[in-house]
Design a protein around this nucleic acid. Structure first.
Lengths: 238, 238
DNA sequence: TGTACATCAGTGAACGCGCGTTCACTGATGTAC
DNA sequence: TGTACATCAGTGAACGCGCGTTCACTGATGTAC
């Protein structure tokens, strides 16, 4: 119980936190410029003004740095989506569209980070389980909107849900698992509709960010807004 | 006009074609095992049983090899989709679903090639315009089904099309450009619905191939079939 | 408050690696007369 | 049909590069008495 025991962190500890932050920032900058596959510890060291071996005081390996950056990025995206959603009433179509637009905006603003999260896996790197918790935040927001609407009774019968044909039994556990995200029981057909909306919106974002629309769609933002609004309507949101 | 003028290609020419094929095959194998970012000319040379510099007799640079492989892959996918579609009547929902399933099957069977075509761009590589022609084949099949149904008058009013709200004027040129793929005039709302189905199906495939469904969906094939059938119905196909 | 020791951040050199690409060369295939 | 020359495929050595990671070290910060 010395005076400094649990009080203000010492110089060393503060420095450590500051340098760690600088390392992560350099990592993020690397990511933004050259992408995950080309991210190198030596470049991070260079940009932080340290000798390459010094980085190992802060990060055990290149893979660990990647993992930290992935988690950070998922959280950054998740926070952006949650903030956007919070501007609209729970269970509303506007909230769904707001969340969807936040996903797209973030992706367009951070293409390499988006690629790290939702693009081709980085060769030779396997994301540890640590990242999956953070990875669900953005998606959870979309699903919760539908769950909230169902709970509040404001959900109209889903037009898409009605189109879904008879579903195979073996799909039931999967749908139940996804349905839990909603915090409310959802019909299997509705869960499929949610999954379709989810993959549709991310598919469109991926096509835009990865350049697949380059020769056909010049106004991806407008197309995305139309798609998001249509998706919300197709889920029965209003 | 010597006897050998336009007749059988000489030994050299035949060898050249054979070795070129071996180089491409090795490139494809590389792609399948380590992915595009890690593809190296030296590895291709090793696998072909040549010294590294010899590859330069067949390919001007690593980038050129990548371009060749991209074109090949697009064509491979395109051919698979066209064959699958041809098994069903023009303009039918079955044809749409068959084409969609062929896309997924090919992607699952060739994950690295799929990643090369539809995943994150390869760092430092810009695909030349040469590849875009081949790149449209698979997509064209999907759009044509709708165009054929419209021409034959078998297309019911699209349920999704009706949900699409008023579309911004500035989106019109984009929609017209995409609509041309159909070979028949399609209403703007229907084109949006087609784009949504297209991005939905590729989005689902990407999520599966890139591991995004790993912790929630154990039966992606069943989910995909349900999604494809629903998409076809939502376009008014039958 | 002062001293002796332990902890830790950052240095600098080195390891072994694989890469893309160039270049001068040898020897076989093809061509012109 | 035979010879002289040109073309071309493949070799082997070398270039310069950047990478991840290890290791023994110095000097500053922190801790125990």
């Amino acid at each position: 119980m010395t005076p400094t025991d649990r009080s203000v962190p010492g110089v060393r500890e503060r420095n450590r936190a500051a340098v760690m932050a600088a390392v992560l920032a350099a990592g993020r900058r690397q990511l933004a410029t050259v992408g995950a596959a080309a991210l190198s510890l030596r470049a991070v060291a260079r940009e932080t003004g340290m000798v390459s071996s010094a980085v190992y005081r802060y990060v055990a390996s290149r893979d660990e740095l990647l993992t930290l950056l992935i988690t950070e990025s998922y959280d950054d995206l998740g926070a952006a989506v949650e903030v956007a959603a919070a501007r609209h009433p729970a269970g509303s179509a506007a909230r769904f569209v707001g969340a969807a637009r936040a996903i797209r905006s973030w992706a367009v603003a951070h293409p390499h980070e988006y690629a790290l999260l939702y693009g081709s896996p980085v060769p030779g790197y396997a994301a540890p389980a640590t990242t999956i918790e953070a990875g669900t935040r953005a998606t959870r927001v979309l699903v919760e909107v539908v769950g909230d609407a169902a709970r509040d009774g404001t959900l109209r019968p889903s037009p898409t849900g009605e189109l879904v044909g008879p579903l195979p039994r073996r799909l039931a556990p999967d749908l139940a698992r996804v349905g839990e995200f909603a915090g409310e029981h959802l019909a299997d057909e509705l869960v499929v509709a949610v999954l379709m909306a989810w993959t549709q919106l991310f598919g469109l974002v991926s096509f835009e960010v990865f350049g697949q629309l380059a020769n056909s769609i010049e106004q991806p933002a407008l197309l995305f807004d139309a798609a998001a609004a249509t998706a919300a309507a197709s889920l029965g949101l209003s």
